[in-house]
Nucleic acid binder design. Structure first.
Lengths: 348, 348
DNA sequence: TTGTAGGCGTTATCAT
DNA sequence: ATGATAACGCCTACAA
């Protein structure tokens, strides 16, 4: 039924003009007679003509495709953390509106043969106009090579340098501080934290915010109140268990991710303790299910679609020749108070 | 530091052979002297050469890229349902291993000008070797046009026909039946259901499984025990509220998604009732957080990575000239019993 | 075994 | 305003 893709040559033949003219007409050049353009455009619509991206990329040096590296190393199931998906939604929308599609790098040896491709090679292979990195290990030598290259990169939740690279992330330091302040205002003085993967910038920043606020409040900073996690559920569970096993266990805990906070909730329950009465919990992210735990999670909300959109915008302006934007974009976070720190609905 | 991408011509010049020979050497043709190949390959490695996908696609008619349409119409935030992400992980891994990358269609008018592109045009534009559809409305005329076209398509959780199209989904009918059976075995006789978006195949199949099993068990099928939802949390909440408001409310409910089951959990709690004592709940999907609700959710587990991998395999074999695989792949589901139907941990 | 040359579908630079 | 024509980078007959 549907015939093969018509090419620009077809259009030229059928409309009785040259391919050059067809191209110009379709691309809205001014030096085409209204009549010709009309005819060509109509024909193109009738035949459902689409330009071949490959051909265009070849001559234009622009693919209108943004590459996406999405990993969360350390053997964690990648493409798995809910946080990134919500960011991705924002990224996709923004980029789509700007005329870009998203290439999710999946293969380490695209096409046939040629052996495994490095990050840089994969980006060049598809001639992507820019690259977004999420959850990637910035200290990986291959990543560093990519960052040093001519490819425009923007990292979400990772701090990357370089002339044509940018970072976008939440104000994690402020977030950590805010979480602690909230708990302190509730009367807590024994406030612990469960960190994210400490190799990552957000984890370090949130920890720093935690520490600075603890000290600012005149509370004692205790090493044993810092449990090291990896953002995922199990580490939250384990971290909380360790904290509860202390001689003087905390009465409140700030987990650097909702997933870990959920794990902490579980551990607290298993210890026959109650949230928030025995120990209050605040998470980070405000991913979808944060409102669905029991009790619902108080958390520091990140503007996830906003992060994605910001990443897209930065990248687009990096690609174009617009005035150089700032080196890093930082988005504010917002405290969302729910049951895990607030009163307990049922009780009078 | 990093110089511009070397082309095959560069390699030819530097290695003192013609471009044709370089191409053959790199692509593993046999009619190249071992010595020449060695030299060329080494040089390619040294210069970090990557073939330009665009050029290759142009001549080869193969892009080694699979397109992905990921929507969940009806105004729902797309790219948002956890289920699809877990499927995506499996898809990405499988496709990656097979040498394909994934193009996430984002823009409705890729490149500049040319106006909005239909599904088919977007697929052709990038010359993708195949397309995966997830959560897309199969009755959309534009989707139908894509399905009638020469583009190979595989739908996840959607039933699509056509010579070069395939479907992969879980055994939803069996899943619905199994859920009901489980509840019946627990002694329940008033078993209700909250359906998924009834326009979708999985929702209808799960409902059918529910109904058939109800009848098979000799229980009465009651229209008022069927609440219509849309897979998302709020509809589960609303559905459950409606069910609880019945004169003779159910003592058990089968929700066609974990998200709705979570919503039901909330509604039950607000009604001062308890799970599973007052009403037992079983969900569907077994998405990540199903084990984290309170109580944890009994659910029908779908093999999500398996669905993704199957989709990839089917597509790859559809693209190649391998013997035609079956028209549809159906994966088994598995009952995972947790607290929302089983005993209640804390109590003796 | 290797070189030459045509062509994939576009855009862009010339003339005309 | 339009038509040739040369790239873009690669693959693949066809010759040699």
């Amino acid at each position: 039924m549907t015939s093969a893709r018509p090419t620009i040559k077809e259009l030229a033949r059928l409309s009785g003009v040259s391919v050059g003219t067809v191209s110009r007409a379709l691309n809205g050049y001014t030096d085409v007679s209204a009549e010709t353009r009309e005819r060509v455009v109509r024909l193109a619509r009738e035949l459902d003509y689409t330009p071949a991206a490959a051909a265009r990329t070849l001559v234009t040096e622009r693919s209108h495709v943004i590459g996406l590296f999405l990993d969360t190393g350390e053997g964690h199931p990648d493409v798995q953390h809910p946080f990134f998906h919500e960011v991705l939604a924002g990224l996709k929308d923004m980029l789509g509106a700007a005329g870009f599609d998203l290439l999710l790098f999946a293969s380490e040896q695209p096409g046939n043969g040629y052996g495994p491709h490095s990050y840089l090679k994969r980006a060049r292979h598809h001639h992507v106009d820019g690259v977004v990195l999420m959850g990637t290990d910035a200290s990986d030598p291959e990543v560093e090579r990519l960052l040093r290259s001519e490819v425009a990169c923007v990292g979400v939740d990772m701090s990357i340098g370089g002339a044509n690279n940018r970072s976008v992330m939440s104000d994690n330091v402020a977030g950590g501080a805010l979480a602690v302040r909230h708990l302190a205002e509730l009367g807590h003085t024994r406030i612990a934290t469960i960190t994210g993967l400490i190799e990552t910038a957000p984890a370090r920043d949130r920890l720093r915010g935690y520490r600075e606020e603890i000290q600012r409040l005149g509370l004692a900073y205790r090493d044993d109140y810092v449990a090291y996690g990896d953002y995922y559920v199990d580490s939250g569970s384990a971290g909380m268990e360790a904290l509860l096993a202390l001689e003087e266990p905390p009465t409140a805990v700030f987990a650097a991710s909702d997933l870990m906070a959920a794990g902490a909730l579980g551990a607290i329950g298993r210890a026959q303790l109650r949230v928030p009465d025995d120990v209050a919990v605040v998470g980070f992210d405000d991913i979808g299910f944060a409102a669905l735990t029991e009790p619902p999670l108080t958390t520091m909300r990140q503007d996830k679609p906003g992060l994605g959109a910001a990443a897209g915008e930065v990248l687009v302006s990096l690609i174009g020749d617009e005035p150089d934007p700032q080196a890093a974009v930082t988005l504010p976070v917002e405290l969302v108070v729910r049951g895990s720190t607030a009163g307990h609905g049922e009780q009078p």
